[in-house]
Amino acid sequence: MRLYCIILLFAFTYIKGFAQEKEPHIPRWYVPDFAAVQYAGSIGFFSIGAGYDLFKEKANVDLLFGYVPPAYAGDGAIRTMTLKFTGEVIRLQPNPTTLIHPLTIGTYFNYTFGHEYSSDLPAWYPNGYYWWSEAVRVNVFIGGNVRFITNRLQQGSKVTAYYEIGTNEIKLASYTQNVHALNIWSILHAGIGVRYHFAK
């Protein structure tokens, strides 16, 4: 899985560079706009993936593959896939090479691979025995990021550093029912990451 992700990422980078050299004026819609690496965020110890800008770069969508080493998991490593939507709500531009988004809002759907994390109730349970899925988590988050233009790797490419704080539907259900015993901070989790935006 890890190897697959890394190869995929390099492939994206390569295709982008290649596409630019040969046909600089025909953008290909399927070539990702950025690659991403994330730490934590309830989707993996680290996650790696790529995504696209949406709505004139006011929002974006990521597909991330996450990995949790066995030391933090159960019988083996945890592998996940995440589809994430992020809206960049407030935009500040202190100088021509820097953009700051002090508030981002988003949601992500996380799928955990493996038969031990069931997507729906296995046949040997009566209907409605458990109401949630082990494999699928729905998260909401707020966060922030800073983006700057760098010419180090590619002329006109950009790098974004971001953080996110959020929760998932089952922790939220736990909190709403127990506002006295639980503290809002106890249901929150955080992640940080970096996006590398390929030059257009």
């Binding site: 730490y39 934590a40 965020g41 309830s42 989707i43 993996g44 110890f45 996450g66 949790v68 933090y72 998991a73 159960g74 945890i78 996940t80 955990t112 994390y117 082990e134 988590r137 966060g143 922030g144 953080y163 704080i165 998932n168 089952i170 922790k171 901070w185 929150l188 989790h189 955080a190 992640g191 940080i192």
Partner: peptide, 16 residues
């Protein structure tokens, strides 16, 4: 941002 979140908020997975 990291200062705020660094205090045990990093979670690797709900089933960690």
């Amino acid at each position: 941002g990291m200062l705020v979140v660094s205090c045990s908020l990093f979670e690797y997975h709900p089933y960690e």
